[in-house]
């Protein structure tokens, strides 16, 4: 996990994002335990309440679950859920910006499509 404290995003959202990212990248596999509030809190000097707030976002989104007396575990199917969510957000998060920047640079629709094509073939 990596936290960027200069980021403009509130810390508890960053905590949620970072854990989500780790689940997405399968650093925390489904059914596995995620680091405890205290562990994250100690490692990054974040108030335990803040860490908990971030974790609770993921609990509410049913990506992780609390097992009493043990800790937090990645819910089976969590990664698929994240993929689904990110696909839904793809237009807002990436396409809009892409098009807006393209417009500023006077890149036409066809030119943009070609560039996307190129991106797919070279990677």
């Amino acid at each position: 996990m990596q936290f960027n404290f200069n980021s403009t995003e509130p810390i508890y959202l960053q905590v949620a994002d970072q854990i989500e990212e780790a689940i997405f990248a399968q650093s925390f596999a489904e059914g596995e335990q995620v680091p405890s509030t205290t562990e994250i809190s100690k490692e990054f000097h974040i108030n335990p309440a803040t860490v908990l707030k971030g974790m609770n976002i993921l609990v509410d989104a049913q990506l992780i679950e609390k097992r009493r007396g043990v800790g937090m575990f990645v819910v089976p199917g969590a990664q698929a859920k994240i993929v689904e969510k990110r696909r839904n957000q793809f237009y807002d998060d990436y396409v809009k910006n892409l098009v807006s920047e393209a417009r500023k640079l006077h890149i036409t629709k066809q030119e943009l499509a070609q560039l996307i094509e190129r991106g797919f073939t070279t990677q």
Binding site: F5, I11, F44, H45, I46, N47, A49, T50
Partner: peptide
């Protein structure tokens, strides 16, 4: 301040 910014509630 930076060292405690995330520590304090």
């Amino acid at each position: 301040i930076e060292e405690i910014a995330n520590l304090i509630e």
